[in-house]
Amino acid sequence: MTHTPPSPLLSRKELDTLLGGAARAWLDEALAEAAHAAAHDDTTPAESYSVPPWELRYAAAGRHCGLEHADSVRALLLTEAHAGLPALTRLYEQGTAAERRAVLLTLSALDLGATALPLVEDALRTNDTTLVAAAVGPYAAAHLEPHNWRHAVLKCLFTGVPVEAVAELARRSRGDAELARMLGDFASERIAAGRPVPAGLHHVLALTAPGPAAPTVPTASTQES
């Protein structure tokens, strides 16, 4: 198992330099099916067992383009399909851990406002560190309310997800006295138990100090296509 943060998502152009001919052809067809879905209303009933063709492609992406590129290919499919909340929820709820991770990694590239927060909150309730790491990206930084965001940071420290995975950690921590209290209590608990304090804790604690006004918040990263 790895605790490293997810790799950056690759653009179509970058993927084209890495994929073989068969994989590129498969991706062309998959993206065409996703584009077709984007041009039509998503009428798949929530309780239906039928699966739109591009969503089958979403599941099979790793087998055709390599598991190491599955996140990037799935992100491209989601953006090409202009996946809305019903499709994202379906893909997340019916997905493997890897498919769920790709949904989480792509949320910030889609025009969703805060509507997809239930997916992030679901991932933060799991104990699968790959999902927790993917859930604390730019979308959570932009939309997760303070209480849940603080718990997400604490959960990273608990489960061994490097705090570097938390997007906009410095901006959201600055001046957060409640987060500082929670970190201090956690450190005390570890010390009382004779256990080491996670390395990232002091780093986050330092970031909670009140500082100058936060710089302009960067907008959520957008997916190149």
């Binding site: 067992y49 699966v51 089958l56 599941a59 099979a60 790793g62 087998r63 598991l67 599955a70 019916q94 493997t96 890897a98 498919e99």
Partner: peptide
Amino acid sequence: TPVLDALPRYLVKDS
């Protein structure tokens, strides 16, 4: 038995 109708969406999964 409706599980039979839902299996196609699961049988495409990587693992």
